[in-house]
Design a protein around this nucleic acid. Structure first.
Lengths: 410, 410
DNA sequence: TCGTCCCTGTCCACCCGCACAACAAATTCT
DNA sequence: AGAATTTGTTGTGCGGGTGGACAGGGACGA
């Protein structure tokens, strides 16, 4: 959601104004990590005294605290502006990055600061409740050292599959072999807690995180293409997540690529994924099938690309061209094992894209590696969990969980 | 733009609240044509007295006028609510639908009412200034009988090509053979006027119009696929137009369809357009190439589809499947000659889509014909010209042109 | 070292816009 | 016809952003 949330046709009353302004201040603090009141006034276009009031409210809510004027970048004369910093025991969230072979869990505070992290392998044929128990154990671990005063706002979970927007149901996670799994409920049950849980697709969250604090800061039209066994994309257009009717937008893996190509697990032939998906690449580099989940590590061991890999690079570029034609992004971020591939066959990918994309969309697009490394999805999960805080800080804190440690013990 | 315009990170003051609420009231009046104050209060969630104040301001601006309680649908007891209707000599806009072989121009008032229309053929090899002069003549015609009091808010132009969002430059209109044409400036120069001009792609405007007052009312995720010699799409996601970095989003005609297919004018092989574009279909039905621009009329003469046409229908369905997978729309509207085709080979299109789309996005999508017939793009052009009125009615009226007739005479 | 300049934080009165309550008006239901 | 119901109108109150006055705090120049 954007500073102005997307309501359709509603009016605005002054209560909503306050909510929005308070949330926007917090969003700026979150984005910058630390920011001066003077910057806030110029960014938001409000009066000094108004900003003072808003900042005061955030402080009394225990979200932010006054900081000494940021030592570094002093620009001109005049009284230095007091900083607004994120409170040490301010609100935090749990972020979960569920991968095909491992789960990463982190406690994350405002500003995207990872306060503590833990991870564990996930069995290949694990049932959802087993994985849920394992994730719950990791959550208990990262909550262990949380300050008593720090409220837990929610849990965000990144999923390698299609997640229904309306209720967070995992419709299909092919590489976990899950169908219609209510993973949020499973984790909550395993924890014995009741906090807001948000789930979303890993590529969508990668896009969100890169837009908030990665290479995509300030770029309002970007796509994060993720290679994680399957191929998917997260799309941000006009500064907003592209979700689609059900939340399934961005399924670029099943773009028609070559009608005479290999059969795909979706039932068709020659989907893009059959050419550039994890299994296709594993085959191209003669990597054993059981190592597909660690494909990025395997690829990092390569120093020079084989001809097969070069051909794969071209195929990636050709697929990206369709994506660029369809969405006209300013930035395409290559995540997952595409990250390692871009190091190896970058020129082939670039050439494939340049060859097949239309001139107009091509001239404004740029390819890039993720700015957050392999943490994009994890930090994106933190972002969606934090989101309610920016829509209505007071309400979000009201429904947050206080003293999580005690709650988990009891 | 939505009721809440997309500003990034700005604060809201009460002046903005008033602007927004006034614009939102007007948007509702525009959408419904006529609406009661009571409906406005419940739609916008504001107090009766606030709505009364807003409606009063619209009346004093000469935009709306008080109407007798809508006779038809009386529901319960109680005093009937006074209606808000669009003023007879209220603001209006000029809408231009530039086609490959003809231009349609209309004067359109709020509520999407076409007050007067005119059209003329456009020479196949016309230069931009010639077409501009012809459009200017049509504009003079439709303005002839405009009430003196009615202010002209702007001109909206639908273009069969790629339009740069930042300045409305026509980057490429392949079937007009235009490159980098500043058509807005040309028309204004021919008129000797200075009013706001907005240009956009015809498919984008088709989507917009169908979303506002066609089959897509209330559906926030839809795609309008337009067949007009070339194939393009207009995308609305989350209630907002999908524009992309440069404004070129939705170029679905150059999706990779069959790498071994026919060469496309874009330089590649086997773009979707080479299978389902105007020229391909003309060939399939043995229609002479110079009649491609009137393909819809030719198709309307058919009663039963040939096997070639059936194959084309399947190809359309397969292409739509890629689009549905990428965007996950709730509604796909088939415009241009796809409209006539759907009457002929609807089952083949449906089957092609069902065959190739993923189950999750497929289950919520529906195909449909345009609700506005062949006027979608024209009414969409009116919509973008009216847009400033909903963002800030007072400001838009301030910069509108009064007594256009006199201005054009002088 | 001191004074000036410039910018910022704080406090105040003020204005604007929405909400709320009370009353009048208009229609339906009994 | 009277009660019930819903809406328009009016006046008052309240919340929230604005703007000015004043004080605080650092940079720069003399």
């Amino acid at each position: 959601m954007s500073p102005q949330q997307r309501r359709s046709g509603l009016g605005t009353n002054q209560e909503a104004v306050r909510r929005h302004n308070l949330g926007t201040v917090l969003r700026h603090v979150h984005g910058a990590g630390q920011i001066s009141r003077a910057e806030l006034t110029s960014l938001m276009g409000l009066n000094r005294s108004t900003i003072a009031g808003l900042v005061g409210e955030l402080e009394s809510l225990g979200i932010s605290e006054r900081a000494t004027p940021a030592g570094g970048a002093r620009q001109g004369a005049g009284r230095p502006s007091a900083g607004v910093a994120i409170a040490g025991d301010g609100p935090c969230v749990i972020a979960v990055d569920l991968g095909v072979d491992r789960a990463v869990v982190a406690r994350v505070g405002l500003g995207g600061r990872v306060l503590r992290r833990a991870q564990a392998p996930v069995p290949h044929d694990g049932e959802a409740w087993q994985v849920g128990a394992s994730v719950a154990a990791l959550i208990r671990e990262v909550v262990e050292d949380a300050p008593t005063a720090a409220p837990l706002v929610g849990i965000g979970i990144s999923v390698p599959g299609m997640v229904r927007r309306s209720d967070g149901l995992i419709r299909l996670a092919p590489n976990l072999e899950w169908h219609d799994v209510s993973f949020g409920g499973i984790v909550l049950a395993a924890l014995g807690l009741d906090v807001p849980v948000s789930l979303a697709n890993d590529a969508d969250l990668g896009a969100l995180a890169e837009h908030t604090r990665g290479v995509g800061v300030g770029i309002d039209d970007l796509i994060y293409v993720s290679g994680n066994v399957g191929v998917g994309a997260g799309v941000i257009m006009g500064g907003h997540r592209l979700e689609g009717a059900g939340g399934y937008a961005g399924e670029v893996g099943h773009l028609r690529f070559d009608p005479g190509g290999r059969p795909c697990h979706c039932g068709n032939r020659g989907c893009w994924e059959t050419e550039v998906g994890g299994h296709a690449i594993a085959e191209a580099i003669h990597c054993p099938p059981d190592k597909v989940a660690q494909l990025d590590e395997v690829l990092d061991g390569f120093t020079s690309p084989s001809p097969e890999l070069r051909r794969t690079g071209t195929a990636i570029g050709h697929g990206l061209a369709s994506i660029v034609n369809m969405f006209n992004p300013r930035l395409v971020i290559l995540g997952g094992y595409f990250r390692s591939l871009y190091e190896l066959v970058g020129p082939e990918i670039d050439a494939g894209l340049t060859d097949r994309a239309l001139p107009a969309p091509l001239e404004s697009v740029r390819l890039s590696l993720p700015g957050l490394g392999s943490d994009s999805a994890l930090l994106g999960a933190a972002e969606i969990a934090l989101e309610p805080l920016f829509v209505d800080p007071v309400a979000a804190l009201g429904s947050a969980l206080v003293d999580v440690r005690a709650q988990l013990a009891g």
